[in-house]
Structure formats: C-alpha cells, structure tokens
Design a protein around this nucleic acid. Structure first.
Lengths: 143, 143
DNA sequence: ATAGACTCTATACCCGGGTACCGACTCAAC
DNA sequence: GTTGAGTCGGTACCCGGGTATAGAGTCTAT
C-alpha cells in the first residue's frame, strides 16, 4: 500500500499524455472522477487515474467508444465475477474487427487485380480500372 | 446502351437507402453531382448515382473517410487516357488498405489474447482483460 | 505581499458525417 | 386552378471526441 501523494489535474495530464481539458471532459462523460477535491475546488487524483487513462486510450485503439468504455469501467468497479460480461464485450468487438478485415481483404484483392490488369494492358484504351469502378460490384463488401 | 429515365433526388435516395439531405450533402462534398438540372433547378440523376452511393457506403464501412472516397471517385472521373495516374492512385490506395489491415490484425491478436486469458482464468479474481488494458503495452497497436 | 504557474467554471469552437426545418417554388393529377 | 407531394437553397442543429479561451480564484517561492 504505497502512500501515494496526491496529483493535480495537470500532473495526471502530463503523466498520461493527454491534456487537462480532456480530463475534465472525461469527468463530464463519467469516465474518470478525481478521488476528491481540495477546499479550493482543485481536483485531486491518485496514480490510478493515470492507469485509467491508459486504459481508456488502449480501449479506444481497440475500437471501443467512450460510452462503451464507461461501461467497461463500470464493470471493473462492480467486477469480481463480472468477468464474463467483459469477455463478451471483447468477443463482440473481436468479431467486429474480423468482419472489417474481411472486407478490406476483398478490396485489397480487387485493387491488386485492377492494378495488374492495368499494368499488362497496352497503354491508351479505356483504362481498365475506371471501367471496373463503374461496374456494380468490385469488391462488394456485402456489409 | 439502355435508355435510362431520369431520376429525381428522392428516387435516388429511396433506391440507395439514404436520405435526400445526404445526397445534397454529398454534392457539397463533391462526391456526387446530378447529371444535370431541370430548368426549375430540380436535380436529375441516372442509375449510376445509385451505384455511386452504394460504392460510397461500402467504402465507408471499410473505414474510408468521405475525403478519401472523393479521391477514389476522382480516379473514375479524371480517367480518359491517364491510365498511369489512375494506376498510381489505385496503388496508393492499395498500400493504404494494407496498412489498415495490418492495424486491424494487431488489434485482432490483442483481443484474441485477452479473451483467451479470460477464458482460461478461473472465475472470480480481477478480470484479466481489465487488468491487461490498464497495463501500458499489450500488443501495442502503435498508432 | 506579490509574481507566476496552476486551477476553477463556463462557454464556444473544431471536425466529420450527417439530419431537420424553413418558406418558396414545381409538378402531376384531378 | 387547386391540392398534395416533391424539391429548392439556406440555416441550424445533432452526435462523438475533443480543444480553446476567458475571467476569476489558488498556491508557492521569494
């Protein structure tokens, strides 16, 4: 139980690499509250705040919205056994990400094909890429 | 050469499943212009417009911004002989798409790892996903 | 006891990607 | 020729995720 000295908003911001307004914004969005306030109204945080921000940033990188992250953080608090729910969320996102990859692969294949055709084509003539773009399907990412 | 009867903005919107304002918005954003206007000012489109909207929607699903999509569409318009330039654009986009795929794969791996850890863990205990997200690096999706 | 750095709230603004509403006009059918 | 649906341009608004600015108060070192 390390005796943590209190951090001011600016300290947290610096440590976490975000800016002060962002912290206040997260507070409004119910993602991160200071542990307490000084009499003066100054927000006081501890090291957990820095970790929480890292958490938020990582989760954003993984495609979670702030709203979703708020829910994750809520689970964290209630956690202990709620692990399942967290896992379900993550699994959902995973499926999501996989779907995106699939669609991008289709597009990739299509672009490769187009570029190749174009290279092998004798110059002039209607550009085969243009032709293909006009036609209905291309990579057809179903959605 | 099918004789296409002219479509009004509302027809296009209905066919493409977007709303009328969106079409006007796309016009402002230089994504899609009507083929012409009636004397009254009414926009006239053809079936290509519907296809273009489908194209836009697919591309959006893939994470392209409207600005990027405008560039893709520009390939189509500027064509006519500039096959090389078109090809270069397409190649650029291809690299783009590949970068996106890479990024998503990293995210995918991270999520897989998290879910796995969580599954192998005996219930209760702090949720490993929550733990992992709090800790700096993980799979590090650079960004 | 005062300078300079920090913080407070509040409000406004930014971007992207739309959506909604306005009053005026057009068009087709009756 | 009137009615009702469709359209016009303009402006304003929405959401998400922040960022900026202003004017007032606080804290710390000297």
């Amino acid at each position: 139980m390390s005796k943590e000295r209190p951090l001011q908003i600016g300290d947290v911001a610096r440590k976490a690499g975000v800016n002060v307004q962002t912290l206040r914004y997260y507070e409004r969005r119910k993602l991160l509250a200071p542990v307490r306030r000084k009499a003066s109204g100054y927000r006081i945080y501890d090291e957990d705040a820095v970790r929480t921000i890292h958490f938020i940033k990582r989760a954003q990188d993984l495609g979670f919205t702030l709203k979703e992250i708020r829910e994750l953080l809520a689970l964290k608090v209630t956690a202990r056994g709620q692990c399942r729910r967290v896992r379900d969320r993550a699994t959902e996102k995973l499926e999501n990400v996989r779907a995106k990859i699939k669609m991008l692969r289709k597009i990739e294949r299509t672009l490769v094909k187009l570029v190749k055709t174009c290279e092998s084509e004798n110059t002039s003539k209607p550009c085969p890429i243009i032709e293909a773009l006009g036609k209905e399907k291309m990579a057809d990412a179903d959605k």
